[in-house]
Simulated assay, not measured.
Amino acid sequence: MRFAFSGPRGFHGFHSYSVHPGQEGSTAVLRHTLAMTARGPARLTWPLLYRPLHDAVIEDGLDRAARACTGDVASPARWSPYVRLLRRLVRLLPAAPQVRPHA
C-alpha cells in the first residue's frame, strides 16, 4: 500500500507498507517505508514534532500486526518521555473540524 502526503504544508513524498518473504524460520516481513522531503517550516516541525509521533504510531502499528499474526510481540515498542509529552500537548489542542465525504 502506498499513501501520498496531502498535508501538512511542506511535506512532500509518500508512506508505503510492503510484505516480503521472511528469512528462514519466519513467514513474512512487513516493511514501512517513508520517502519524504520537508520544505519551509516543515524542516523544523518534522524533526521536532511530527517524526517522534510518526515513529511511535508506526511502531505501535507494526507491533499490532505482529501480535495479530503471531499472537505475540518479542520486543514491544515503548514511547519515549518526549513522545508522551507531545501526546499530552496534542490533546490540549482544539479538535479539528470534521470533514464529511460527499454522497
Rank of each mutant, 00 (worst) to 15 (best):
residue 49 L to G: 04
residue 40 G to S: 12
residue 60 D to I: 09
residue 58 I to P: 00
residue 56 A to R: 04
residue 74 A to Y: 04
residue 20 H to G: 05
residue 88 R to A: 12
residue 103 A to P: 07
residue 55 D to M: 12
residue 18 S to W: 06
residue 37 T to K: 15
residue 56 A to E: 00
residue 3 F to T: 10
residue 5 F to P: 01
residue 75 S to H: 13
residue 68 A to D: 04
residue 61 G to E: 01
residue 71 G to V: 03
residue 98 Q to V: 14
residue 52 P to Y: 00
residue 70 T to Q: 05
residue 44 L to K: 03
residue 77 A to Q: 01
residue 78 R to G: 14
residue 74 A to V: 07
residue 72 D to P: 04
residue 59 E to L: 12
residue 67 R to Q: 08
residue 8 P to G: 00
residue 90 V to F: 13
residue 40 G to K: 09
residue 25 G to F: 08
residue 1 M to Y: 15
residue 89 L to G: 08
residue 30 L to M: 03
residue 4 A to R: 10
residue 37 T to P: 02
residue 9 R to S: 08
residue 67 R to K: 07
residue 9 R to K: 06
residue 25 G to L: 07
residue 4 A to T: 13
residue 62 L to Y: 01
residue 79 W to H: 03
residue 90 V to D: 06
residue 34 L to E: 01
residue 82 Y to D: 03
residue 23 Q to S: 09
residue 64 R to A: 07
residue 64 R to C: 13
residue 56 A to F: 03
residue 21 P to D: 06
residue 50 Y to K: 02
residue 30 L to W: 01
residue 48 L to G: 12
residue 30 L to V: 11
residue 56 A to V: 06
residue 15 H to I: 07
residue 28 A to G: 07
residue 71 G to F: 07
residue 23 Q to E: 09
residue 57 V to I: 06
residue 73 V to I: 08
residue 65 A to L: 06
residue 99 V to M: 07
residue 73 V to H: 07
residue 50 Y to H: 13
residue 43 R to S: 09
residue 52 P to A: 06
residue 24 E to W: 14
residue 62 L to P: 04
residue 22 G to C: 07
residue 87 R to W: 05
residue 32 H to N: 11
residue 27 T to E: 09
residue 57 V to F: 11
residue 89 L to F: 13
residue 80 S to W: 15
residue 21 P to E: 13
residue 64 R to H: 15
residue 97 P to L: 12
residue 73 V to D: 06
residue 38 A to Y: 02
residue 44 L to M: 00
residue 32 H to S: 10
residue 11 F to C: 02
residue 71 G to K: 05
residue 32 H to L: 04
residue 93 L to D: 03
residue 72 D to S: 09
residue 41 P to E: 09
residue 14 F to N: 10
residue 78 R to I: 14
residue 64 R to T: 09
residue 72 D to V: 13
residue 97 P to F: 13
residue 57 V to A: 10
residue 27 T to I: 12
residue 29 V to S: 08
residue 40 G to F: 12
residue 16 S to H: 09
residue 34 L to M: 15
residue 92 L to E: 01
residue 79 W to L: 12
